[in-house]
């Protein structure tokens, strides 16, 4: 990719003949100092290989989650029960495609092209958030995704707006701005159901029952089992631990659920006066690991649909590329 090539060339031009080992130490010191001073790292700055790899992995996983995450909600676009809801849902799913694009762009500044990342997604070498391996069985699931899944995502993402890597942080600023409508529409949707007919209320409760625990799993394994957490915190890619964010999310959700008139499905959930936080029951990490391994209810379906869309679109992408090869330079717009 252009940016990576530029990065490589500049380094070779500027320091080609010098002792690279000595350089690396100096570069590393400059990098550490920049991170420590809360400065942003930009694409052409020197960065440790592991920092680059961690970012590519994380940004790619995030981008993949956005585009796989379109599926469970798109599942209801054609059945949305009012035209207003239909417009909202289409706009939301569209935003997710947009967010995927912002994030793939951010990953590309690190020298990995979108095609390569999509290949890795399609072949299972890169992951997306496990939450999207659960099915949307009723209309209320669209609301539960907005309220709980997007809510958890926002809790995770807001700190990323201050992530040490500039392009990722900037993408996240844009995304978080747009996400706030997603969560609110979900909440409003559930509220309408909760206050609606008994059937609608039951539909809403059933959705919350099914989405609550998987949403808590979105924050990742407990801190003492989280493989990448410590290094990511040191690099300021991550700003808070999994457990901290999970706790924050639970504390936010409890009063929101009350206002909704819906129960959270956890008998151990109660206010702990001493800690000033809510206690909550144990999470079933076996389910989490199984879904992660590919044994969730929709893993196969999601990746198959994604792969099919990509494969069936190949002739379209080829056609546009072939047309561009034939016609570049013909119009004023192209020359400018």
């Amino acid at each position: 990719m252009a940016t990576a090539a530029a990065h490589q060339t500049t380094r070779t031009q500027a320091y080609g003949a010098q002792d690279t080992a000595v350089d690396t130490v100096a570069y590393e010191r400059r990098f550490d100092a920049a991170v420590a001073a809360d400065e942003r790292i930009e694409p052409r700055d020197w960065m440790p290989d592991a920092y680059r790899a961690t970012l590519v992995r994380q940004i790619a996983q995030h981008a993949h989650s956005e585009i796989i995450g379109m599926q469970p909600e798109a599942n209801w676009i054609t059945r949305a029960p009012s035209l207003r809801r239909k417009a909202i849902l289409m706009a939301k799913v569209q935003d997710e495609a947009g967010h995927g694009l912002y994030l793939y762009s951010a990953a590309e500044t690190l020298g990995t092209g979108r095609d390569e990342l999509l290949d890795k997604l399609h072949s299972g070498r890169q992951k997306y958030s496990s939450i999207f391996n659960y099915p949307t069985l009723t209309w209320a699931d669209v609301g539960a995704i907005g309220w709980l899944v997007d809510g958890a995502a926002i809790t995770n993402q807001v700190p990323l707006c201050r992530c040490s890597y500039g392009p990722y942080a900037r993408a996240m600023v844009r995304i978080c701005k747009e996400e706030s409508f997603h969560q609110r529409q979900g909440y409003e949707l559930l509220l309408a159901l909760s206050r609606g007919t008994p059937e609608q209320h039951a539909m809403a409760q059933d959705a919350v029952d099914r989405w609550w625990w998987p949403s808590l799993m979105m924050f990742g394994p407990p801190d003492d089992e989280s493989a990448h957490s410590a290094q990511s915190m040191a690099w300021k890619i991550k700003r808070h631990s999994n457990d901290e964010l999970r706790q924050r999310f639970v504390d936010i959700c409890v009063p929101q659920a009350e206002s909704l008139g819906l129960a959270l499905p956890d008998p151990d959930l109660r206010w702990n006066e001493e800690r000033g936080q809510h206690d909550f029951g144990p999470i079933d990490w076996t389910e989490f690991r199984e879904v992660l391994k590919g044994n969730g209810p929709c893993n196969e379906q999601r990746i198959t649909q994604r792969r099919r869309a990509h494969d069936e679109g190949a002739w379209v992408r080829e056609a546009a590329a072939a047309y561009a090869d034939k016609h570049t330079g013909e119009t004023g717009a192209t020359r400018a």
Binding site: S105, E108, R317, A320, Y323, A324, A333, T334
Partner: peptide, 19 residues
């Protein structure tokens, strides 16, 4: 504002408008 993929300048402009 960011970047995007497009086969040529005309579609790049349109994709940029949409995105």
């Amino acid at each position: 504002a960011g970047s995007l993929h497009a086969p040529d300048a005309e579609l790049a402009l349109r994709n940029a408008r949409d995105l």
